[in-house]
């Protein structure tokens, strides 16, 4: 702080408190509604303070949406996306930054072209790709004149939920940027000492990348947990849906059965795991995000 400016400091605190209230307001109302009966929610004026039925509503929401199973699905999908994307990206970034080989630039452009198109704009053909993953092989066989029918449907499977979301090079790009900042001497020393490429990767590069991996894992976990469009299309079976989708089905669509109390309670339950991650690992999250902008 350069100078003392009491008024400005108080104004700043005021602004931040205002901002904090703005952020908390929707969550507060979800909490208020989530702790009342349906009758209270429909009352005029609506309730402004929390009631005493939070746990009853939570139990109802848990059973109605089968949240135990759905939260487990969300966990599998989020962890799958995180681990899968980091593993795939680390390897390809290593290949692109540390190897000189034929087609290197081609590989580079193939990988980074995928940065350009978000999943949302190619949703329909990707949907077809997941309903029959073997389709490209089928074309090949048709072209070669074989009479084979191949079908490998990934609908309602963890693979179908995870793999298409791994298909982008954001993480590869980040690791490549990081590898470029790793001192050259490390690789030179490793080579002089006779370390194989994989040995160098495993014992030098991987430990160095640890902090980047942690930061990126948090972002990817939140990304996976909060997916909506994808699981909405790819899970027709109730048991394979993710928690976010289950929550969506609890939202009252008409005024006939306005169970907002249960729905909002479920909303709090579904957002709890990622919120805990953000609060507990805030420093890493900030690092990961800021690095991703470099």
């Amino acid at each position: 702080m350069v100078e003392r400016t009491r008024t400005l400091d108080i104004a700043c605190h005021g602004l931040l408190i205002l901002g904090g209230l703005l952020v908390c307001l929707p969550i507060y109302f979800a909490f208020v509604v989530g702790s009342h009966t349906v009758g209270d929610v429909l009352a005029v004026p609506p309730p402004w303070l929390p009631g005493g039925r939070f746990f009853e509503n939570a139990v109802t929401a848990w059973q109605k949406a089968n949240l135990g199973r759905l939260l487990f699905n969300s966990l599998v999908v989020a962890v799958g996306i995180t681990v899968g994307k980091i593993a795939v990206s680390l390897l390809s970034a290593f290949a692109i930054a540390y190897f000189r080989f034929r087609w290197r630039m081609t590989a580079f452009w193939l990988v980074f072209a995928s940065l350009m198109l978000p999943v949302e704009v190619r949703i329909l053909p990707t949907y077809e790709a997941v309903t029959n993953v073997a389709l490209p092989l089928q074309w090949l066989f048709d072209w070669l004149g074989f009479e084979v029918t191949l079908e490998w449907n990934m609908m309602n499977s963890y693979g179908g939920l995870i793999l298409p979301l791994i298909a982008s090079a954001t993480a590869t790009f980040l690791f490549r940027q990081f590898f470029l900042t790793v001192p050259e001497e490390l690789c030179e020393a490793a080579r002089i000492d006779g370390a194989s490429p994989l040995h160098f990767f495993r014992h030098v590069l991987l430990p160095l990348s640890m902090s980047n991996m942690v930061a990126l894992s948090i972002i990817l976990f939140l990304y996976g947990w909060n997916q909506y469009l994808w699981p909405l299309l790819f899970t027709t079976e109730k048991d394979m849906a993710t928690a976010v989708i289950g929550l969506k089905h609890l939202i009252p669509q008409s005024d006939a059965e306005p169970a907002w109390n249960v729905a909002m309670n479920a909303a709090l339950l579904v957002m709890l795991p990622p919120a805990l991650v953000v609060v507990a690992l805030q420093r890493w999250l900030v690092k990961g995000l800021v690095d991703s902008g470099k």
Binding site: A97, Y98, R100, R104, E184, E185, C187
Partner: peptide
């Protein structure tokens, strides 16, 4: 974007 010390 290739490291100066690299593998072939």
């Amino acid at each position: 974007g290739l490291k100066r010390a690299h593998y072939t």
